[in-house]
Design a protein around this nucleic acid. Sequence first.
DNA 1: AAGTGGTCTAGACCACCGG
DNA 2: CGGTGGTCTAGACCACTTA
Lengths: 232, 232
Amino acid sequence: MTLEPGMTWQAVRDEVLRRIRAREWPPGAPIPHEAELARDLGCARATVNRALRDVADAGLIERRRRAGTRVALHPVRRAKFEIPVIRMEIEGRGLAHDYRLVLREEAVPTGEVRARMETGARPLLHLVGLHLADGRPHALEDRWIDTGAVPDAAAADFTRISPNEWLVLNVPFEGGDIAFSAAPASPPEAEALGCAPGDALFVTERTTLRGGRPLTTVRLVFAPGYRMHTTI
Amino acid sequence: MTLEPGMTWQAVRDEVLRRIRAREWPPGAPIPHEAELARDLGCARATVNRALRDVADAGLIERRRRAGTRVALHPVRRAKFEIPVIRMEIEGRGLAHDYRLVLREEAVPTGEVRARMETGARPLLHLVGLHLADGRPHALEDRWIDTGAVPDAAAADFTRISPNEWLVLNVPFEGGDIAFSAAPASPPEAEALGCAPGDALFVTERTTLRGGRPLTTVRLVFAPGYRMHTTI
DNA sequence: AAGTGGTCTAGACCACCGG
DNA sequence: CGGTGGTCTAGACCACTTA
């Protein structure tokens, strides 16, 4: 029990984490309410609230009005990861970034892309480009843009700037979803990335929205050996 | 300009996001300091602080004492993802989870595992197990545990509970790192997962620490078709 | 040295929801 | 209905950093 006044919310958080780890508050057990903790720890309730919100964000406790706060039974760890602009990611490693536009067309998407974009039989802007790191293939960007939702894209010069970067700079968005998976290299992907067909490649697929409307969807296929990394 | 009193921090955040998206505050530009925003928006500075902290967490603005707050030039989006216990993830999809221990040994790790665990030539507990969803292979868990750091693991019955779940329930940890990648199925992986050798598989590698000391490292290889999903 | 964000406090009101 | 967390306020002090 710490009774020093002037406690910071980080100190409160650490004390809460200590009690959870020490099983003073075992999984599933309710913990004292904010006012009580504030009294015990000698700080304001707002400070306890700040600390507990942080612990709840990490998934270690569950909070509900009236029901109080409980230690999570199955602590689902939550972690953050970053989605940088590809050029910045490459340059951040001290490598030179280059980009080559491989394909630009107006076309009607099929299959998954069509389902994700929800644009039916309307033609979209389809761009395929290769990102290079120090001259070596890094990732293949296969993108569809709804020019109805992003009119400026029709006039953009995607031979000089990648759609990835142009969109980040020019098109504010509100949300979207991301999926990560592994896929074998298709023959064209293998040729572009300089690997063998069937090689295991790391794939991310993103669709970004504004006002609930899909703006663009992209499939990024990374050259063999790519790793996405983060910390808990 | 909104001048209603009693503004919530979410409303302040939304107004800030609107100004950024509308280029009222263009990329790289400084935004007014908290006190000024609080006056303009008719709320307390703490409310503005809460809102700006949220926007900064998302990567859209950069805050520094004395230097003030600026709109990020290259908005690195930050997203969260969840790392559930494998059993919970499977059961959450309405499938039955099963687990089979494939290998249990005391052995000295080599290569990457040895480097990650920092245990030198000391033998560790090595466990390999298969997670099944509705009887079909879901993921292969290849784990090393430092029994010096986690003594209880030596006596645990990993034929009934997976190391994944046992560790979550019994071993509090403080941090770690995670990597995601794609890899071809090795012959033993292919046999365990019921796919062909060389098939592209989604792989996650985690090392968890307590007090800066590695407790366990695990390589999870998922059956073909697995997708990790999250939203921005 | 001074301005900015970071945080704490004490009090208050409110929304929600479980008993 | 009443207790809990969620939030706002007004004021204050502090830490950091950069001009």
